[in-house]
Amino acid sequence: MNIIVPIKQVPDLVEELEVDSSGKSLDREWLKFKVNEFDDHALEEALLLKEDTGGTVTAIALDGDDIDKALFAAAAKGADRVVKITGVDGAPTNHQAAKAFANALSSLDYDLVFTGVQSVEDRDGQLGVLLAHYLNLPHISVVTGVSVSGSGVNVQKEYGGGVIAEFEAATPIVLGIQAARETPRYVPVAKVRRAMRSTEMEEMTAGDISVGAGAEIQRMFKPESSGSAEMLSGSAEEIASTLADIIKNKM
């Protein structure tokens, strides 16, 4: 199976988030970016499937903050090809990003597309489902298991409460990966550096990414704290004593 994994950088939520002067988007100047955690799972599942059954894994991303590092890290982990899509400026909507990926994929050969099931920035919907519809391909999201079955794939989709729905699907298909069957592999920086020297970064242009009108952002704001929590202060010991009393009273 030849698998394509679109990768996206998202703001690291460990950092303090601030709204910029427009009042409509994040102040990106001081933001730290990292690969969307679900994309890490998508890549891991792709690499595991390749190790099981052969084929190739191609990591592909829109040009942007720190994206070269993310793509070379994918190569260091085992991706055969890394592709950067240029010509998309600023922060595209997921509809626009999906269109750019769809354009790029039209000239690539693949059986499966694994996207991270969601990201923290999906205001206009999840990338994978949009991509599937622009490619006119079927799609299953919240996937926690994929195996090759005959000429197609067996796919496990998760519902609430841990109930799993099992599907048989023909390829090509786009799958939104929730969790790889193993923890995404770690790759040391030295190996990423080696990949930078030995891997060829392919480039493609985004092409026409015009999409239908989206909903316009009016305002971005920090949710008002409902202030419901009584905040406990003091030393760890003092806090622990107070908490112990609260808990004993409730039980």
């Binding site: 939520l13 988030l17 994040l26 909903a215 009016q218 971005m220 920090k222 949710p223």
Partner: peptide, 12 residues
Amino acid sequence: LYGGKMSVSSHV
């Protein structure tokens, strides 16, 4: 969005 750390109002 952003894990519940930001709210966004969108207008259509």
